[in-house]
Design a protein around this nucleic acid. Structure first.
Lengths: 174, 174
DNA sequence: GGCAGATGTTTCGCACTCAAACTATATTGA
DNA sequence: TCAATATAGTTTGAGTGCGAAACATCTGCC
């Protein structure tokens, strides 16, 4: 019967994942912005001017993932991207007026019904629920620390590929 | 302060998503099988002979998603796929001996550390936690019922594209 | 000055996920 | 019978997400 609880937990986690994804798609069709995009745009707006690495930590995503999301926000004119002139490795990201307007009128990235259902509960129930979720996160993230060393920085041979073609000309070192 | 609890919940959900994904990658590198693949293979093994639609309901995924996962299991020789001769719209899926062996020796798709941490809790705590997760699922899935009508079945004009080329020749209707 | 290693970001390849469109087949009804 | 409709499954197109590799730049050391 212990296995049954584990299966229940696993099943719940998968269904939560799925519900989050479905909600994100609904958001996208109604407001032209997916869940992750909205979460990132809000974070950018809150942080003021920031960089991909800070943002990645803030929203718990890898830098590689963030590049794609910020690309899409950039293409829609919701954020600006420019090189930091002091440290030219860095990229500075900031929301545009259009982006800020969108953040204000967009709904909470949390599912409306979940939010509503949550508010319907007594406050101590809400806190208990939030605490349980954080407990699960804690139990899962403890895992992630042991494995995956990775240690790259290899020989780096030139291949002449274009980078950063979406930045204005002249930004790229020649 | 209510917004803070909502933000906490949202953040927890995203981090749970992420932890599940990272665990899946670890599984894949250690056992050559990702989380979703393992979940599906186990379900196929448990159900005996089944079909994509039944399997999709069982593991809470869309049929489209399942096609890709079963493709990959098929390519590795872990499952069989054949047309149902009674109803030729259907496809029957079954695990191969190799697949069954793999299911037996593979770990639980639930994260090892989460499982271990879970077992460390008193049983009533475990049940409380599982119940809370199901409560969250319920609050989220209630949402998913109102929208998305979809209703396709258009005119269906011939374009002569090949389908099911991975099935053995002769299985496809001519 | 110059180079070795560190740091910041993007690209690449892959897996997963869905909705919508499409093919193929079965069922229903006139 | 045979056309309309329903059902089963796959393909397509797009977004998300990661690790590894590639690239750009900076810092520290000699």
């Amino acid at each position: 019967m212990t296995a049954s609880i584990e299966d229940d937990v696993l099943r719940s986690l998968r269904r939560i994942n799925r519900a989050v994804d479905l909600h994100s798609r609904r958001l996208a069709s109604l407001h032209k912005l997916t869940g992750p995009q909205l979460v990132c745009l809000r974070a950018i707006d809150t942080l003021g001017t920031t960089t991909p690495s800070v943002l990645a930590r803030e929203v718990s995503l890898s830098q590689a993932t963030l590049t794609g999301i910020v690309d899409r926000l950039y293409k829609r004119g919701l954020v600006e991207r420019r090189r930091d002139e002091q440290d030219r490795r860095r990229v500075l990201i900031r929301s545009t007026p259009t982006g800020r307007r969108l953040v204000e009128q967009a709904p909470s990235p949390l599912q409306d019904t979940l939010a509503a259902n949550l508010r319907r509960l007594p406050v101590d129930e809400q806190e208990r629920l939030a605490a349980t979720l954080q407990q699960v996160v804690g139990m899962m993230e403890a895992d992630a620390l042991d494995a995956s060393p990775m240690l790259t920085t290899g020989p780096v041979t030139a291949t002449g590929r274009q980078v950063l073609e979406f930045l204005e000309p002249g930004t790229r070192a020649q």
